[in-house]
Amino acid sequence: MSNTTHDVAEHRFRQHHFATAEQQLDTSKIGMWLFLATEILMFGGLFVGFGLMQGVYPEAWVAGHHHLDRVLGAVNTVFLLCSSFTMVMAVHYASTDQKSKTVMNLGLTLGFAFAFLVIKYFEYSHKFHDGLLPGRYFNLAAVGGPPQIGIILISWIMVRANRGDFSSAYYTPVDLIGLYWHLVDLIWIYLFPLLYLVS
């Protein structure tokens, strides 16, 4: 990679209070990790409440789990794991100046995310129909904002990647949103056994 594009990218995206682009990337990453910690703690509260109620009402929990389809849950888990993989690839290609592969992998990530949401939509409408939402058992699932937020963010960096904003000198947003998307995946990995696999 030539030195001039490096300098141009530094000049365009480096904010005035940072001495170097590297310092800016490191700082942004610290900020993102801290934010992810807050998300985990928020869900941590829900998990604690969930675990406690499960101990108090074990029969209700088993009954609640019968309303969920394990196969659909497993398919969704696979979708999210795949989306995390394509996200990693997108970050890799963005950091190695491969624009078209970046855009393609972001597109694939979006595709998996939408597939996940479509399945969720059918599950939710079914539970609304059964009168289970909102309720004690399913309030964990009700805080389902993160995937939607993730989709908006991934779309945004896809547009920017397509525009050629990112290069090995500056790919901070791809990196950060990648981290966020892995968190969505991670939370689901915990939710899946908690909600679908209890018996």
Partner: peptide
């Protein structure tokens, strides 16, 4: 950073309890 999110989720659950009666804090609802 590490404590405030727990308050956030607690207050959110309190709001849900008040509005929908999800039954996590109120002994009448279990």
């Amino acid at each position: 950073v590490l404590a405030t999110p727990v308050l956030a989720i607690t207050l959110l659950l309190l709001i849900m309890e008040r509005t929908f009666g999800i039954g996590i804090f109120d002994p009448k609802l279990g």
